[in-house]
Amino acid sequence: MADNSKRDSRQKPLAETVVGILSAVLVFAFVIFLAHQAITGDRSPPDLEAIPETALRQEGKTLLRVKIVNRGERAAADVTVRAEMPKGPGREIRFDYVAAGSSQSGAFLFDSPDVAAEDIRLSIYGFVEP
């Protein structure tokens, strides 16, 4: 019993020390990462590109998946993307947000079953800063 209490009193500070030091290292590393980003990032405006991905046939329609990539260092909001077809009306979709250095996916739905991804011209109309 006495041995157990001695062992407990030795183990408890060790556990606290290990957890405390590990936590300090993690928080410190996180702070260094954020500080590095603060010095090097957050400068360039959103740099957006719309990339067509796959075209899926769905009950006489075509679902064209697109990805919006933001290579800038700031986020973009209300990103409006338009898809123009050689024939027929175009389509527009809006992405709420595309974070800096990140991507978001979405899809256009066309009434025709034979729309090919390479026939579609995608253009980004604009964005607002969140």
Binding site: F33, A100, G101
Partner: peptide
């Protein structure tokens, strides 16, 4: 989903 490490942090 789709976020870069900086945006995640």
């Amino acid at each position: 989903d789709g976020l870069a490490p900086g945006a995640i942090s």
